Simulated assay, not measured.
Amino acid sequence: MAEQRRNQRPSGGRPTGGGRPSSPRSGDSRSSERGGRPDRGGRQDGPRSDSRGDSRGDSRSDSRGGPRSDSRGDSRGRSDSSSRGGAPRAKKSYGPQGAGGGRYVEKEAPRSADQAVYDGPELPAEITGKELEHNVLAQLKTLPEKLASRVARHLVAAGELIDDDPETAYQHTLAARARAPRLAVVREAAGEAAYAAGHYAEALADLRAAKRMSGATAYLPIMADCHRALGQPEQALKLAKSPSVANFEPEARAEMTIVEAGARRDMGQMDAALRTLELAPLQSKSRAPWVVRLRYAYADTLETAGRTTDALAWFHRTDAVDSDELTDAAERAAILEKTQRD
């Protein structure tokens, strides 16, 4: 199951976390064999000089009249990018004249925006791509070997950066997506990295695509949180009521509960938000992160509803199981205590 990264404060505001893109689900068996590097186009030849007189300014015409232009394209009518839409190749032009006549000098053409995305951020030499989980590597085997290796390296780099530099992680997943857009494993990675970087519309689009390809439903909590971030709480509630949620593991179910309660709060339905959380296993003896987040969400909602005494009690209960300090429950409790004393 893909790791689900949610809010440090999961009860209210905008989502701030994404999922690690190095552990997604199954890919699409129809993965593109066209996923290699886009064709960079053909060379634009300089002026020809041969016995047929091109360099003398002769405009060659075929038997029907008019300038000749063959299907391969050259200086007689060809543009400097290929018909397949590849990035322009570096143009060649005459340089300084020497004893042997003119010579061609390379002039580097600027990269287009699409080419920059395709290239992606620089890949560290120590990343090989083999660091991915075996099930992910197996899905990438549907691609040509060199292409699979490049996609794998971008996914590994994204996974390493997603917590500390989510924007660069997202750029790595875009480079992987540009090469293999038909693999669910890649679309999930792009969606989770976009979520971590705060690109919620893009995250929603990629996770929808991944869901269509793989049939997986574990993306639903993140998708619902994206709807919240986009100001669409009603859509978040629709996903929260999906039949598949009943079959979720406890962690995923808790995440969806938190998002559902947040959507209710967005709509001003504070009592409904509290009821949603009260139906969750708040009293669980587990110290798992999902229990911490559930309790924190409940405490935060109680405080927002004006029930400060109850909120203080639940911030303390949250802090009691938050050994990894996932939340600021201790600080919130201290603030409430001070407020009550004053």
Rank of each mutant, 00 (worst) to 15 (best):
Q139P: 00
P124G: 03
G66Y: 03
G102H: 14
Q115G: 05
E122W: 07
A116D: 10
P124E: 06
R78E: 04
Y104T: 07
Q139L: 01
R84V: 11
P88D: 06
K92W: 13
P67F: 01
V105T: 12
K141A: 14
A113F: 12
H134L: 15
D114E: 15
A116R: 13
E122D: 15
G77M: 00
K141L: 11
S79W: 08
G65M: 03
S83P: 03
V136S: 03
S75A: 11
G85V: 03
T128K: 01
S81L: 01
L140P: 02
Q115A: 13
R68N: 13
V117M: 08
S75T: 08
A116W: 02
H134M: 14
E131Q: 10
K141H: 12
D74C: 01
E126F: 08
H134P: 11
S71M: 07
A109V: 07
Q97F: 11
V136C: 02
A109R: 07
V117N: 01
L123K: 06
G100P: 04
T128N: 04
S71C: 03
K107F: 07
L143R: 03
A99Q: 11
K130T: 14
P96K: 08
R72S: 10
S112L: 09
G65N: 00
S69H: 13
A113Q: 14
